[in-house]
Nucleic acid binder design. Structure first.
Length: 274
DNA sequence: TTGGGTGTTGAGTA
DNA sequence: ATACTCAACACCCA
């Protein structure tokens, strides 16, 4: 499900709903979501604490409490929603944060791939998983020079490099395919063979695509919904992802689906020659 | 019914 | 270093 635009949309929508809420108790129905610390300590550290802010780093959500930070990754299908505590929940609801207001924040994840870590404030940036991340796409640290250097020192396929969160944080399968299409670059091109012009275009289109997707509230293909339960709209603006067999909107050639670096990959063979 | 696919990522293997 | 396979898990579809 969620790449950077979806996580950012969840952050924005959820923030209005839970800022200032104090956790009274935590119900854990599937312990494997909680990676650190032990489940009992996880609960102990957060109970009686209030949510001060929600931030984002790459595809991670960060819930800020008084002394600690909850770092949450939604992986494929994780999502958050806010309910009254007496509302029923289903078998895919794995973590429930009950607030003293009578409301609760629920983490639901059909495939149970999501992760949560709690760290002392400040510590989260020095340890896994956050310390592995490359720059934010919108941050000034994501310069052309930095990007070019990372691309030039690897022979991997460009798609694999863009999916690598240590290069730049936040791109996933949808937005990589869309970005490569807009830049007219075939996903199997070796990163070190890209020209300076192509690298510049790639960076600009990645930023632009992510920005536009945020403005559209993300992309809903199957299950993604934001903190209000609303779907995204960016699926209406996709050029290649999920468009196999459809005519390319630029050249009318048939969009193809291939496999690159283990992932389903969508290209226009005419606009993105190898 | 079964196998292959799904928006993610970490581990293990050559 | 890189590529490939598998694993976590549930569901959908041909």
């Amino acid at each position: 499900m969620p790449e950077l635009p979806e996580v950012e949309t969840i952050r924005q929508t959820l923030k209005q709903l839970v800022i200032g809420e104090e956790i009274e108790s935590i119900q854990v129905n599937w312990e494997n979501i909680i990676k650190y610390p032990l489940v009992e300590d996880f609960k102990y550290l957060l109970v009686n604490q209030s949510i001060q802010d929600i931030k984002r780093r790459g595809k991670f959500l960060k819930f800020y409490f008084d002394q600690h930070v909850l770092v949450s990754h939604l992986r494929m299908e994780g999502n958050y929603s806010v309910h009254k505590q007496d509302e029923p929940y289903d078998k895919h609801t794995h973590i429930i944060f009950n607030f003293s207001s009578g409301k609760s924040l629920r983490y639901r994840d059909v495939r149970k791939f999501g992760t949560m870590h709690v760290f002392k404030k400040g510590e989260q940036n020095n340890v896994k998983p956050l310390n592995q991340l490359g720059p934010e796409p919108f941050d000034e640290a994501f310069t052309i020079d930095y990007f070019a250097e990372r691309l030039q020192k690897t022979t991997r396929m460009i798609k694999a490099v863009l999916l690598d969160q240590s290069v730049v944080a936040g791109l996933g399968n949808i937005y990589v395919d869309e970005t490569l299409f807009k830049a007219n670059i075939h996903p199997m091109r070796r990163a070190h063979t890209l020209s300076h012009k192509e690298i510049t275009a790639l960076r600009a289109f990645a930023i632009e695509t992510l920005q536009e997707a945020i403005e559209q509230g993300g992309t809903t293909i199957r299950s993604y919904i934001d903190g209000h339960g609303d779907m995204g709209m960016f699926q209406q603006k996709l050029y290649v992802y999920g468009q196999a067999e459809e005519p390319c909107q630029v050249c009318s050639e048939k969009v193809e689906k291939i496999k690159v670096s283990g992932r389903g990959t969508h290209i226009c063979p005419s606009c993105q020659p190898l």
